[in-house]
């Protein structure tokens, strides 16, 4: 089983987190991934950064390629990728919850 505590899956704007999040919505090829990530995160991943991260994720068994369509190859998230993304999301949620809780009173006084 793939190690779910993956390095590089800690910050929400890390390319691996963005790619896994995008692929959690269904298989996509490179261009569709870049467009989707730009739409939901406002982050433009250049081709080099995108494929560097795809190679790492495939190496770790967190995503896998599907059959090529034309010259475009779609990727899908694996069970190991789902577990790694769930871990990363839980980490981010914990931080977001703490941030929200601490910001709550401050935002009340500002309002």
């Amino acid at each position: 089983m793939a190690n779910t505590k993956q390095p590089g899956l800690r910050r929400p704007n890390d390319p691996p987190v963005l790619i896994l999040t995008s692929l959690a919505g269904g298989p996509k090829h490179g261009h569709a991934l870049a467009k989707d990530i730009e739409a939901f995160a406002g982050v433009h991943l250049g081709p080099g950064a995108l494929y560097g991260a795809i190679a790492r994720l495939e190496e770790r068994g967190l995503i896998e390629p599907l059959g090529a369509e034309d010259r475009r190859r779609p990727y899908r998230i694996t069970p190991g990728g789902v577990a790694a993304l769930a871990d990363a999301v839980a980490d981010m949620r914990r931080i977001a919850d703490v941030g929200s809780a601490r910001l709550g009173p401050m935002l009340g006084t500002i309002g």
Binding site: G30, H31, A34, P47, A55, R71, R72
Partner: peptide, 17 residues
Amino acid sequence: AWRDRYGAELATLVEDE
């Protein structure tokens, strides 16, 4: 070796962009 595996896909992505 990297180009053999990902080159065509990356080239297509670059052309798409």
